[in-house]
Amino acid sequence: MTNILKAFAASLILLLPMALRAQTDEDGIMMNKKQICIGPMYSHSSWDHYWEGTFKRDNQNLGTVTTQMLGVMGIYGITKKLNIVGNLPYVWTNASAGTLHGQHGVQDLSGWVKWLPVQQNIGKGAVSVYAVAGGSVPLTNYIADYLPLSIGLRSRTASGRIILDYQLGHFFATGSGTYTLRSDITIDRSAYYTTSLHATNRVDMPNLWSFNFRTGYRSNNMVFEAVASNMTTAGGFDIRKNDMPFPSNKMNATMVGAHFKYEFKSPKGLLVTGGGNYTVAGRNVGQSKAFDIALFYTLDFSKLPKGTRPKDNH
């Protein structure tokens, strides 16, 4: 991933859902050793009201702002307790009213390493603790200072996440917390005003906290889950009255939604995932309605005939 939020979130935390065995960087599922899962995903979000600071309003000069993303995501199991995840999105934006033109282009390459250091049975249930580290880097020189129609913020990021997962039978609950460091960016003007005048083209970007909770049904071939998530910037400032958003604004959002993941029995290895979410509260973000769909295929290199398997260094 994910509205102002969706247009930016891919460069911050990428909360897009993935396939069942093709786990995401936020759930309690791992790929087995020498398995790779890869496929396309699509997301769509739109909003016609947004929060200018804490004041909720619309804007006839924007109408409905739509952000769409088409991306490729892949996961590889180095071992059954160590996975790598990668994502590359193409994003395009549009406003239904006014004179602002939408933007489009390749956004940021993102990657994570996901490690499962703790897995313990407690009574009839099982507790797992995951550690995730990753980041993102912009691949093109897209315009960051063109919100809310920019495709991203063009900031390099580094993040650390802890995930706690509990499963009892088919019931599960997963919670995670993430802190994301964001690099400064440069914009195409020699001075700008936030709460004071800055005689520079360099923008100091606030870092980001995000939290995610999901719970529901999980079996070997399907997941149905309710999801709640929150994003809070560690700093920033509010959009000034009747002004455009700025990359270093405070951007807070709380979203609720539901997702599913399903693995087909035939053809074996084919997975589909989808869902939607709604922004219920925010600050300097759009009140978006969003949905996503993705299709993935799992390849198991451990089952290749001897002599054709990739070299195993583990």
Rank of each mutant, 00 (worst) to 15 (best):
A126E: 08
M222R: 09
K124N: 10
I163T: 05
D188N: 14
Y42S: 04
D48T: 04
M255I: 05
P245L: 05
R218P: 00
M244G: 04
A7Q: 11
Y142F: 14
N252A: 10
L16D: 05
A226E: 07
V203C: 00
N87V: 11
M255H: 07
Y90F: 15
I162S: 09
L197S: 13
V113S: 01
Q167R: 14
I38E: 00
A19Y: 00
I75Y: 02
A258G: 15
A10V: 09
D238G: 09
I38S: 09
P17I: 00
S159C: 07
V203L: 02
S46C: 06
M251I: 10
V223D: 05
W47Q: 10
N207P: 06
G98A: 05
D25Q: 12
Y142N: 03
T254Y: 07
A97R: 14
V85T: 13
V132L: 02
K81N: 15
D300G: 01
S176V: 08
L20A: 06
F246E: 05
D184N: 15
A131V: 07
A253S: 15
A10Q: 14
P117Q: 08
T64R: 14
Q23N: 13
A173H: 01
N94M: 02
S229F: 03
V65L: 14
H104I: 05
L181M: 08
E52I: 08
T200W: 11
G160S: 13
G74M: 03
A95P: 03
Y262V: 14
K34A: 02
P310A: 06
S266H: 15
L14S: 11
G105I: 06
S110A: 12
W51E: 02
S136Y: 08
T140M: 03
R218G: 02
Q167W: 01
T254F: 08
T174Y: 00
N277Y: 14
T79N: 12
L109Q: 04
I151E: 07
A294V: 01
K261P: 00
L139R: 07
N121H: 08
G105A: 03
A9W: 10
H259P: 00
V256Q: 01
S302F: 03
Y90T: 11
F246W: 03
F172I: 06
V113A: 12
A228M: 14
S110V: 02
L62K: 09
G77V: 00
